[in-house]
């Protein structure tokens, strides 16, 4: 087992765990976290792409992709969290 394979399989596994959580969890926050996991898994996988032959020279493209992905995910998480808060406020108002 080469390190890249381990890395890749881990990425896939993490993505899978996140996926199941994102689809099947009921708690809102858990779902956001699950999505984050997915994102991390995808990032892992892309980083594996940088490992390619020749193994000594890392390919910078996947890194750029990963960074972009992280940026996108951060903003998405922010929006999601904001929405969750907003929803909690509204629910609290309705209950009162």
């Amino acid at each position: 087992m080469t390190p890249d394979l381990i890395y890749g399989l881990t990425g896939i596994a993490v993505f899978g765990i996140g996926l199941v959580g994102a689809l099947c969890a009921l708690d809102r926050l858990r779902r956001v976290l699950a999505l984050k996991l997915c994102s991390v898994g995808a990032g892992f996988l892309l980083v594996v792409g940088a490992w390619r032959a020749p193994p000594g020279v890392p390919d910078p493209v996947p890194h750029a992709l990963v960074i972009t992905g992280i940026v996108v995910m951060v903003s998405a998480t922010a929006v999601a969290l904001a929405l969750i808060r907003r929803l909690q406020t509204l629910e609290a108002e309705d209950e009162r």
Binding site: F15, L19, L35, C38, G41, A42
Partner: peptide
């Protein structure tokens, strides 16, 4: 989630 699946595919 859709976007992430897409990203996975891209990867």
């Amino acid at each position: 989630l859709g976007a992430l699946l897409f990203l996975m595919g891209v990867g």
